[in-house]
Design a protein around this nucleic acid. Structure first.
Lengths: 128, 128
DNA sequence: AAATATATACGAATATATTCGTAGATGCAA
DNA sequence: TTGCATCTACGAATATATTCGTATATATTT
């Protein structure tokens, strides 16, 4: 499980990681198509980024066939947690509560989601 | 009130904004000292960034005295909201609830803060 | 089989952000 | 008043990220 301690995907990399986390192992073509739904990106651009991610160890690829298949190998939860910590730190001085308040205060949140959050709070309180 | 629509501070800029939001109008020297508590940064580096921010309209400076005083002119709340939306979008597919759950699940949160959050949730529910 | 489409590899151009050196002005202390 | 400290201005070096063109290989279509 040798892994470089510093998981710090760039923006472009993160966009691709999202797609791979949602869709599972994919080809460059597939990822590029999805990306292009939002904004034009050259095929070789996507390819290049995915090659860089391979070098960084974020993804692995199956080269058996001519068309390679890329698979994420870093944990979605862990990665998001790292990103969140960084974001918390740089934007909310490390206070999760502040962030939560701002997030809840400024976005439509569904009933079931609110319920989930309430349940979570209850659980946290019980474990005090 | 002509202002460029795209408020998108870089990391270095954000660090400085934080200091200015907390401390109010400050000199480059002051900001640089604070920055150096965490990591060595050359004085002229800080100066340069603050000059760039001036050009971008994030801050204004009082040049009356030889030592200029810099003051933030973009709203803390609004800026953080923009940053959060971007973060939400790129990291949690736009779901504030997911972000909140992850934030609460992974960080120590104080009682009073939890209470504030609960109150906020109540308020949101009432306004449905 | 030849033409066309689609892959990867990779260097290099471009864009953006960060860092710092140096010059010149101004203040201050000996 | 001379010299040292501290300030701004600004160009330029460096670092990092993104984008893409071109070469080459392999598959697919006609």
């Amino acid at each position: 499980m040798k892994q470089n301690n510093i998981i710090r995907p760039t923006e472009a990399e993160l966009k691709i990681l999202q797609i791979l986390w949602i869709s599972g192992p994919s080809t460059v073509r597939y990822v590029n198509d999805i990306l292009n739904e939002k904004k034009d990106v050259g095929y070789t651009t996507t390819l290049k980024i995915m090659q860089i991610m391979t070098k960084k160890g974020f993804v692995e690829r199956n080269k058996e066939k001519r068309t390679h298949i890329y698979k994420v190998v870093i944990s979605e939860k862990e990665t998001k947690n790292l990103l969140m910590n960084k974001f918390l730190d740089t934007t909310f001085g490390g206070s999760a509560a502040k962030l939560v308040m701002q997030a809840l205060g400024n976005h439509k949140t569904h009933k079931e989601e609110l319920k989930k959050i309430k349940d979570l709070i209850k659980k946290i309180e019980e474990n005090e």
